[in-house]
Simulated assay, not measured.
Amino acid sequence: MNALVADGVVTGYGKQEIVHGISLAAEAGKITCIFGPNGCGKSTLLKAVAGALPVWNGDVTLGSEKISNLPVHEVVRQGLVLMPQGGGVFPRLSVMENLRMGGYAIADRRLVETRIESLIDQYPSLARRRKNTAGSLSGGEQAMLALARALVSEPRFILLDEPSAGLSPAMVIETLERIKVLTARGIGILMVEQNIREAMPIADRLYILAAGEKRFEGTPGDVRDDRQLMDIYMGGAS
């Protein structure tokens, strides 16, 4: 089974435990959303899955391979990339230089350039501004650049940390539509989102966290109404 699985993951910062034994699974070609109030451990969990934070206890596996506590570049080579909140573009680097950063774990530079040229053709606004600095792009264009950069390594799974943050309502819809299209390529998406109303229609499965623990898992159809969702979201009983 081509799946990304976190099993009883415990992690945090320094000596402060933030995530208390969370388990979840994301399937290839599906969108799995993580919801929850600010400070509940959503982003911390993603960082641990991606190798940016150590897993203190539990395991993370991608397919049949254990990837917990591997160096980030090894996690990328295994087929998993993280797009941090705000996209994490390098504002002083050009569009093309940012895209090349997405291929840093690939030894064959010609392959990287070939992939970039193929990708940039799918983003006409980026193609027109390939020599411009990323900092000069609009928020929506920066989101596109971050997503395109994540695709350079041809990942099996992409972790997205609030991809709609700071975007206009129109760009939120466009960004989520682009994310949905990726699943047709077989790419699995594990996405943290605060924009519940826009993310729910594209989600195949969802998890709700509160206080560093999992409070709910299921499909959007398992949520009866907004009242139940918000009660769980704010830390009430599932």
Rank of each mutant, 00 (worst) to 15 (best):
8 G>R: 12
49 V>H: 07
31 I>C: 02
13 Y>L: 10
20 H>Q: 11
78 Q>K: 15
51 G>Q: 06
19 V>P: 00
16 Q>N: 13
40 C>M: 10
67 I>T: 09
75 V>R: 07
49 V>G: 03
26 A>G: 06
69 N>K: 00
74 E>G: 01
51 G>L: 04
42 K>G: 01
77 R>V: 06
51 G>P: 02
17 E>M: 14
32 T>D: 03
37 P>A: 15
47 K>R: 12
60 V>N: 07
11 T>I: 10
62 L>V: 09
64 S>H: 12
29 G>F: 02
39 G>N: 09
66 K>W: 11
13 Y>Q: 09
76 V>G: 02
22 I>G: 06
32 T>K: 00
11 T>P: 00
18 I>H: 06
43 S>G: 05
36 G>Y: 06
36 G>L: 06
76 V>A: 13
65 E>M: 12
16 Q>V: 15
62 L>N: 07
17 E>R: 15
10 V>W: 12
25 A>L: 07
69 N>G: 02
15 K>H: 11
56 W>Y: 09
7 D>S: 15
56 W>G: 01
76 V>R: 03
65 E>K: 15
33 C>S: 15
28 A>G: 12
19 V>S: 05
18 I>K: 09
42 K>M: 06
30 K>R: 15
71 P>E: 14
53 L>W: 00
20 H>F: 15
45 L>T: 04
44 T>S: 02
21 G>D: 11
20 H>I: 11
16 Q>F: 13
55 V>Q: 04
58 G>N: 07
36 G>N: 04
46 L>F: 05
49 V>F: 06
32 T>G: 01
33 C>D: 10
53 L>Q: 04
26 A>N: 01
68 S>G: 13
44 T>Y: 00
62 L>R: 05
56 W>T: 04
34 I>T: 04
37 P>R: 14
71 P>I: 14
51 G>D: 03
58 G>V: 11
8 G>P: 00
18 I>P: 03
71 P>L: 13
73 H>G: 07
61 T>Y: 03
